[in-house]
Simulated assay, not measured.
Amino acid sequence: MTSSSELIGRARELLPTLKARAAETEALRRPHDDTIRDLIDAGIVQMLVPKRWGGAESDLKTMYEVVDVLAQGCVSSAWIAAFYIGHNLYAAKLTPKAQDELFGARGFVLLPAATAPTMKAEPVEGGWRISGRAPWGSGVMHADWVMVSGMTPEKAPRSFVMPVSDVTVDDVWRFTGMAGTGSNDIVVDDIFVPDYRSLDGVDLRKGPTDGTALYDNLLYAIPLVPMAYATIVPVLTGGLKGALTAFESIVDRRVRNFSGDVVKDQQHAHIVMGEMQIATRAVDVLGRAHIDRTEALVQTGFTTEDRIALKGSAAYLARTGREVMQAMMASAGSSNYHHDQPIQRFWRDLATVTSHAFWDWDIAREQVGRRHFGLPISHPIV
Rank of each mutant, 00 (worst) to 15 (best):
R129S: 05
T95N: 02
L102F: 09
L199W: 01
D144V: 00
D195A: 11
G207I: 13
M151L: 15
A213C: 08
F103A: 04
A143V: 09
D189G: 02
D210P: 01
R174E: 13
I191K: 15
L110T: 11
W128F: 11
A91P: 01
L204G: 04
Y196M: 06
P135N: 05
M151C: 03
M147D: 07
A143H: 14
V169W: 02
V140H: 01
W173R: 08
K155R: 10
R174V: 13
T95L: 04
S183H: 12
V193L: 12
M178G: 01
V169I: 13
S138T: 14
Y90W: 14
G177W: 09
T209I: 10
T95R: 04
F175W: 13
V193P: 06
V124Y: 04
S131Q: 07
V124I: 04
H142P: 00
A179G: 06
Y196F: 08
R133C: 07
V187R: 12
A116C: 10
M119L: 08
T95W: 01
P208R: 08
K97M: 07
A156C: 05
R158V: 01
T181R: 05
S131F: 06
K206D: 15
L214R: 10
G177Q: 07
T95D: 08
G139C: 03
K93L: 12
A114K: 05
V146T: 12
E154F: 00
